[in-house]
Design a protein around this nucleic acid. Structure first.
Length: 374
RNA sequence: GCGGAAUUGGUGAAGUGGUUAACACGCCGGAUUGUGGCUCCGGUAUGCGUGGGUUCGAUUCCCACAUUUCGCC
């Protein structure tokens, strides 16, 4: 069986959707936040801890696992689930984001994208076919097409060419996709141009993917542009397939884009922020390095059910972060991921009750309001 | 008691008779969006042991004192 989406309910006042993703490694409800585990591990967390924070699915990265340890090693281990001892769903990114973060414009060719291996300097080329072959071997539940993720700003002409290339790459990848238990998603590009997003959606739908990702967001564009890009994508996507917004994980953005019809999110923010000493709270992001927490013997959030909040104080976690102890990063990662999965639980509840706009208003009032008064 | 050396921010320290006293760490803030993990960006000594003197001008030269330290009796 391939992973597939079941639509449960549309929210009455917005485009928000409640759904279930069925996979061979369990089902999860959407909207859902997906933590990032680039190198077959969500940094600092064990699989048991990931279960505890209610991660329905995690993301791993094709580019990194290709370079190290190599897809054949993972394949011989019995696939990514066995290799990393995670028996929940896994989605793999295609390496498309590395097109944005690691390559220069001249490195993007029709064949694929040239990279310099960051571990040993080798010149490499990642192609749509190679990306899919690697993902087939990694044996994730959901694979991504290899796309070109273009940064912001950019010219319309470049996006026009890039979208066509991404479509050709999607088709090439689909042709070599052989893993029958693995779903394959197409990626919508087109930046902030509605006609290009529409065109991209229509062409991808013709290829009949198992789900659709919205790409080209979270690359430095203003918030209103991001929301527009999501609207211009969801508008043209089929209702019976899941929609995954790539790279977005700011709490407000999760709410705004859920309202616009997105089902799955991923972001490095909760884990990266954790390693740098930040915690997400109802009243905004706080920096535990700040001196004011030195003798704050209360939990990050008294109402949070995570292991960190149930057992540790801000003062202690601040001490761990200041002393560069990894346990601090682990406690904050647990909290931040739980914060986002709980946010998604709340959003699902609000969709059931058709109260998502009220939820958003209340959330923003708390998140920005008190933070600014501090 | 005698002789020498030293005294620069929270710490280790560089430095010069003349605009804003280097650098590092720490500290105080900020950033971080399909992760090239442990990064990046700011701020942080109105003052160079204390008191005099020389000089147009002294943290820098001179004197005294204090403190620290080394050696000798």
């Amino acid at each position: 069986m391939k992973a597939h989406y079941e639509l449960i309910k549309n929210e009455k006042n917005t485009k928000a959707r409640l759904g279930i993703m069925h996979t061979n490694y369990g089902d999860f409800e959407t909207p859902m936040f997906m933590p990032v585990g680039t190198q077959a591990t969500v940094k600092t967390l064990s699989p048991e801890e990931l279960k505890e924070v209610h991660s329905g699915i995690i993301l791993a990265n094709t580019y990194h696992l290709w370079l190290r340890p190599g897809e054949d090693v993972v394949n011989k281990a019995g696939g990514l689930h066995k290799f990393m001892n995670w028996n929940g769903p896994i989605l793999t990114d295609s390496g498309g984001f590395q097109v944005f973060s690691l390559s220069k414009p001249k490195d993007v060719t029709e064949e694929g994208v040239k990279f310099k291996n960051h571990l040993n300097g080798d010149n490499l080329i990642l192609t749509p076919e190679k990306s899919i072959e690697i993902q087939n071997k990694l044996d994730s539940d959901i694979a991504m097409s290899f796309d070109e993720c273009v940064g912001f700003p950019h010219t319309r002409k470049y996006i026009e060419d890039s979208v066509e290339r991404t479509l050709r790459w999607a088709k090439r990848g689909k042709l070599v996709h052989k893993n029958e238990k693995q779903a394959l998603f197409g990626i919508v590009q087109g930046a902030e141009f509605e006609d290009l997003r529409k065109h991209c959606c229509e062409e991808l739908i013709k290829m009949d993917f198992d789900g659709y990702s919205i790409g080209g967001t979270a690359v430095g564009e203003p918030k209103d542009v991001q929301y527009m890009q999501v609207e211009y994508s969801c508008k043209y996507l089929p209702v019976d397939k899941v929609r995954y917004l790539m790279g977005v994980g700011d709490p407000i953005d999760i709410i705004e884009n859920t309202i616009r019809g997105v089902d799955i999110f991923d972001c490095v923010a909760p884990t990266r922020l954790a390693r740098h000493g930040h915690a997400l709270t109802k009243y905004g992001k706080i920096n535990l390095k700040n001196a004011k927490y030195k003798e704050d013997f209360t939990p990050i959030d008294e109402n949070c059910d995570c292991y960190a909040c149930k057992n540790y104080t801000k003062s202690y976690i601040k001490h761990l972060i200041n002393a560069d102890e990894t346990f601090g990063a682990r406690l904050l990662s647990i909290h931040n991921i739980r914060y986002l999965t709980k946010l998604c639980e709340d959003l699902r509840e609000a969709i059931k009750n058709d109260t998502i706009l009220d939820y958003k208003e209340e959330f923003i009032k708390n998140y920005y309001g008190k933070e600014k008064n501090k």
